[in-house]
């Protein structure tokens, strides 16, 4: 444990610390990459649920537009909110009952399985891990693995207990 500080710090360079870099994202470049991601997402949905890509296409196209608009907002709005937050807000807005077209959007995206859409990201994630990340996990040792599991359980169960309490109080 004693020498882990020095070893892990040398790997820090290529960790994804770019939370604020979203201010500078290139929306046009992302539009192309997003197209690839959506195409693979359609295949995942096809294999996973049997829904043909043609049936799912209008829904996916809608999600695509929501993503692009969200990224553009993250880029140009003068205060910081992550792109994913903007994308979520737009997606919520266009499905609230009463908003023009909301029923159409809800019906179209129903053809897309949410879990299938996450599969491509995890495949990229596995391939994107660098030797540094494996090295950090290795040299941090077993203590960090135990602590990390406790962190995940604690974060989740803390929320569950508080949420459950207030749901009961609200009834």
């Amino acid at each position: 444990m004693a020498n882990q500080t020095n070893t892990s710090a040398t790997y820090a360079d290529d960790l994804p610390l770019a939370a604020e870099d979203e201010r500078k994202i290139d929306v046009i470049g992302h539009a192309g990459l997003l197209l690839i991601a959506c195409a693979i997402g359609l295949v995942a949905n096809w294999v996973g649920t049997g829904t043909s890509p043609l049936t799912a296409l209008p829904g996916m196209a809608t999600l695509y537009v929501a993503c692009i608009v969200g990224l553009a907002l993250a880029r140009f709005v003068p205060f910081y909110l992550p792109g994913v937050a903007w994308v979520s807000l737009i997606a919520i807005l266009i499905t609230i009952p009463g908003v023009p077209g909301a029923a159409w959007v809800s019906e179209k995206v129903e053809h897309l399985n949410f879990l299938a859409l996450a599969t491509p990201a995890l495949a990229y994630g596995g391939l994107a891990l660098t030797a540094s990340e494996f090295a950090i996990a290795r040299c941090s040792g077993w203590k960090i693995v135990i602590v990390a599991i406790c962190v995940m359980i604690g974060t989740y169960m803390g929320s569950v207990v508080v949420a459950d309490l207030f749901l009961r109080l609200g009834q």
Partner: peptide
């Protein structure tokens, strides 16, 4: 491999968008 790292954030976007569309009807 670097591109793969960039693709994670891109590929998770449609998922996040799909997730958002489940909120509206249940608002």
């Amino acid at each position: 491999v670097k591109l793969s790292g960039a693709m994670i954030t891109v590929a998770i976007m449609p998922f996040i968008a799909k997730f958002g569309t489940t909120v509206g009807p249940q608002i």
